[in-house]
Amino acid sequence: MPAIISIAGLGKTYKSGFTALKNINLDIQRGEIFALLGPNGAGKTTLIGIVCGIVNPSAGTVLADGHDIVKDYRASRSKIGLVPQELSTDAFETVWATVNFSRGLFGKPADPALVEKILRDLSLWEKRDAKIMTLSGGMKRRVMIAKALSHEPSILFLDEPTAGVDVELRRDMWNLVRGLRENGVTIILTTHYIEEAEEMADRIGVISKGELILVEEKHQLMRKLGKKQLTLQLQNPLTQIPAGLSDYALELSADGNELIYTFDTQAEQTGIAALLRRLSEQGIDFKDLHSSESSLEDIFVSLVRTNA
């Protein structure tokens, strides 16, 4: 199936002369949740801005559902909903008016039943006649989501949708996103909460200094780059790793009470059994052991650090 968004050779140099994006090539698959990760200033918002028509690209092309975002902007933009990173709302408008405005702006006839459903789903229905300036930050964020959903987009960009949102609401939002995906909406989101990407995304793209340094299916990424560690709590502290264990990738904790063995999750043989045998041969006793797996966050941090 052809990609729903196809980005080729995309570059952006701002008027200030700063190059925010370099030769980005990326295909987003229909119906997936794609998480775009990257440190502050990596270029995530710039990339989203170009696809949505807010930022002019300096080079390259973008097709949204087969429509060029510049030449055929009417067709491409009517498919796309955007929830920007910045909270910007019309302070004096009511929730109801602003959501209906968005629907009209995107060329759709009024549909009060649909707007009602969206507001109810986002727990905004009680606030429909309230002026936006009287809402809390989290509510304003939801108003912006309601605006983006009002015209029934098939592609939804969420630029840090859960920034400044409480835990419960974040769960609600994840459910909302999953519900949208079930209805066939493609979702591209950015977030600084890596566990959010771990929880939600089908695929993950990592952008650093304007370059897309990795695009990978989430589980594959975690398998490929993930590491496991086995920690052994020793009966008697060691001052150094015994020579007989030098062929293992072992680390000794500072107090000498723990031995840490790091191994590759993809290897055929983890070597744990052999290591344990060797330990007993060497007369090293341990009282407890546990294993841990690196999270997406660990992977992300190490990726961005090596790219820096």
Binding site: C52, R74, S76, R77, L82, P84, E86, S88, L105
Partner: peptide, 17 residues
């Protein structure tokens, strides 16, 4: 006003000429 408040994003991302 929308330029100042930032809501211009919506106008720019809408399918309008």
């Amino acid at each position: 006003l929308p330029k100042w408040s930032g809501t211009i994003y919506e106008l720019l991302s809408a399918p309008v000429s």
